[in-house]
């Protein structure tokens, strides 16, 4: 009988609620929904403080993914009615497909704002490595973008590429980072191609030549790091340096990017995947305060 196919790329979905915030006390409840190509997040804020969030995989249908992410965040709170929300902003690749959003804002603006919130106002360079794109952003102390580029033409060096590799090698995605350092001797050279499709066939060849999974992972992480840094280089690096998106959780890639950057990357307790949605919710709060919120 055929062995059941395990899906190693499946990262864990999560939701969270702040123990200290009560939605009854808040003046403005704002929501940010980030529908990405691979994951979707909903962040619910009470007067600019994160009250709850949900983080899940994007399905084949953007409106449903947005709804599910919000439902997941609301489940964490438990007793808040959906119509208590004052303003909702959609962002990310699927931002125009968030049916209940009052408006949409690009992920560039939201990620800079979100990184400013998650890491603090010292952040000047934000690297977001998402499911299918890479964003390099410079921002000021308020999280306002001063320079950005987004590469969404080619998925080389992105999260989805890493998912493909974790599946190919049978290494759960959460373990990829650590495992990529578990090789003996010198670090293997980067695979020559960052294109997911070509790198996959290159990896198959290396495995056949007798490379261990760890060595192949190291070689792929290295290639991704080089690709990612080549984009960061164009906007330039200013201290402090922060990473958002799912790839921030993969030290196999990030620990290989940072020597190029020449700085320490900032640390946070927050889930790095919520940066875009957090930024969107903060814009919602700012618009409400300016009296530009929803007409009631």
């Amino acid at each position: 009988m055929a062995e059941e196919k395990k899906e190693f790329w499946r990262w864990t979905e999560s939701n969270w609620k702040s123990p200290d915030i009560n939605w009854n006390d808040a003046k403005y409840m704002t929501v940010g929904i980030d529908v990405g190509s691979v994951s979707s997040q909903a962040v619910i804020m009470a007067d600019g403080k994160v009250m709850a969030y949900g983080n899940m995989r994007t399905g084949s249908d953007s409106p449903n993914s947005a709804r599910n992410a919000l439902k997941f965040a609301l489940e964490a709170i438990g007793d808040m009615p959906e119509d208590r929300m004052d303003y909702c902003i959609g962002t990310g690749y699927g931002r125009v497909n968030v049916p209940f959003a009052d408006r949409s804002i690009t992920e560039i603006a939201c990620h800079a704002r979100g990184a400013n919130f998650i890491y603090g106002p010292q952040v000047r360079t934000v690297l977001d490595v998402g499911g299918q794109d890479i964003k390099a952003i410079q921002c000021d102390e308020k999280g306002k973008v001063t320079n950005f580029l987004m590469n969404d033409k080619c998925a080389a060096g992105t999260g989805r590429g890493m998912e493909v590799f974790s599946d190919l090698l049978g290494v759960p995605i959460q373990e990829v980072g650590d495992r990529s350092f578990e090789f003996k001797g010198e670090e293997p050279a980067a695979v020559s191609s960052t294109c997911v499709v070509y790198a996959k066939s290159e990896a198959t060849g290396l495995l056949r030549k007798g490379w261990t999974k760890e060595e192949v992972l190291a070689a792929y992480c290295k290639a991704m790091a080089e690709r990612i840094y080549s984009l960061v280089e164009r906007v330039g690096v200013k201290a402090e340096f922060a990473v958002t998106g799912g790839m921030a959780k993969n030290r196999g890639v990030m620990d290989r990017v940072m020597p190029f950057v020449g700085l320490e990357r900032m640390k946070t307790e927050w889930d790095t995947q919520i940066a875009g949605a957090a930024g969107a919710a903060l814009f919602g709060f700012a618009l409400c305060k300016k009296g530009k919120g929803r007409k009631k």
Binding site: T146, N147, F148, N151, K153, R234, V235
Partner: peptide, 16 residues
């Protein structure tokens, strides 16, 4: 703000 539109691929950098 410097807005860089475009992409980088194997054949080079193409940004406006």
């Amino acid at each position: 703000m410097l807005a860089n539109y475009g992409y980088k691929d194997a054949s080079g950098d193409f940004f406006i």
